[in-house]
């Protein structure tokens, strides 16, 4: 059973294409990071999976059923971006209301509130809650009824670093117990260690998807080596230039260390040759981060996309 499967899915709003030919799937026990600039189609993708809208083309199945079917939505947990609740009710009342709607066990209500750290505030009205507390309540809401598919839109907004770490630990536990999780976030360094796969959307099309290794290969971005010379920098530079079969890399002198950007394929031959030359005292290797990969796929025109309405 897949958590969801999108095959060649398209969506249009007022004839303007919002999503075009998106292929994406999520298996149980997997955390998928969904990334893209504002208006790239992340929210639309999530809304389609939730069954709030119907795709205009392509095939979509959720938990082996159709999106929006009550038997399917019962097993989906969703935390919207900027989650809001009824200000005049207490946290406990709100969670009980949503638990009844979902057909979840009411005993879960105090348990979940404790789990997200609201045990002291559960009987206070939501209008007195801070942004972070509302976010925690939203998270508790998403976890009602032990969902098989969990979709979180910017879950760490308003959370302090400790709460953020707690959240990611919780997500790992859920993933290990077989929940499929979709994580939308703009805090890329924060989510990088926790996601199994990433999908990058731009302008309604899927630019890349796969695990970080696959994305790095696909992006073919240079690996950065920081080399500390045993002797002088010049002799180290010479040693690098004399390497056979290695495209001449970009080199920069930073505080008497040499920064070398090398193509992924050239990394090992270069390192082997340098080790043999004895010119290197220390090596630091920096793989492209998720953020680097993201910027690579989105393109440098990132800011131009930011102003669009979703």
């Amino acid at each position: 059973m897949s958590c969801f499967r999108l095959e060649n899915v398209s969506y249009r709003y007022h004839k303007a294409p919002v999503l075009q030919g998106v292929d994406l799937r999520l298996e149980p026990g997997e955390i998928l990071g969904l990334f893209g600039h504002n208006g790239a189609g992340k929210t639309t993708t999530i809304k389609l999976i939730l069954g709030l809208m119907q795709p205009v083309g392509g095939f979509l199945s959720v938990l082996d059923g159709s999106a929006g079917d009550p038997q399917v939505t019962r097993h989906i947990g969703y935390l919207p971006e900027n989650v809001m609740f009824y200000p005049q009710l207490t946290g406990r009342e709100i969670l009980a209301h949503f638990a009844r709607l979902k057909g979840a066990d009411l005993r879960q209500v105090p348990e979940l509130l404790t789990q997200v750290g609201l045990d002291d505030a559960m009987d206070g009205r939501v209008k007195t809650y801070s942004k972070g507390m509302r976010q925690r309540l939203g998270l508790a809401q998403a976890l009602l009824g032990k969902p098989k598919l969990l979709m979180l839109d910017e879950p760490t907004v308003g959370l302090d670093p400790v709460a953020t770490a707690d959240l990611y630990r919780l997500l790992r536990t859920l993933r290990d117990s077989g929940t499929g999780i979709v994580l939308c976030s703009h805090v890329l360094p924060g989510v990088e260690p926790y996601i199994d796969r990433a999908a990058i959307l731009t302008d309604g099309a899927l630019k890349a998807s796969g695990n970080l290794e696959a994305l790095r290969r696909q992006a073919n971005m240079p690996v950065t080596l920081m080399l500390e010379p045993t002797g002088s920098l010049d002799s180290l530079e010479n040693a690098i230039r004399q390497c056979n079969g290695v495209t001449r890399p970009v080199m920069k002198n930073i505080n008497n260390r040499l920064q070398v950007d090398v193509r992924p394929a050239d990394k090992m031959p270069l390192l082997t040759a340098l080790m043999a030359s004895g010119e290197v005292a220390d090596v630091g290797i920096h793989q492209p981060t998720l953020e680097d990969i993201y910027v690579h796929f989105i393109g440098s025109g990132g800011l131009a996309h930011r102003g669009e309405v979703q």
């Binding site: 939730l50 009550p70 038997q71 919207p80 609740f85 009824y86 709607l101 809401q141």
Partner: peptide, 14 residues
């Protein structure tokens, strides 16, 4: 306007 309609509609509720 309160932001709860979207959330309600993701529940098993027509």
């Amino acid at each position: 306007e309160g932001g709860t309609l979207l959330l309600l509609m993701t529940y098993p509720l027509s």
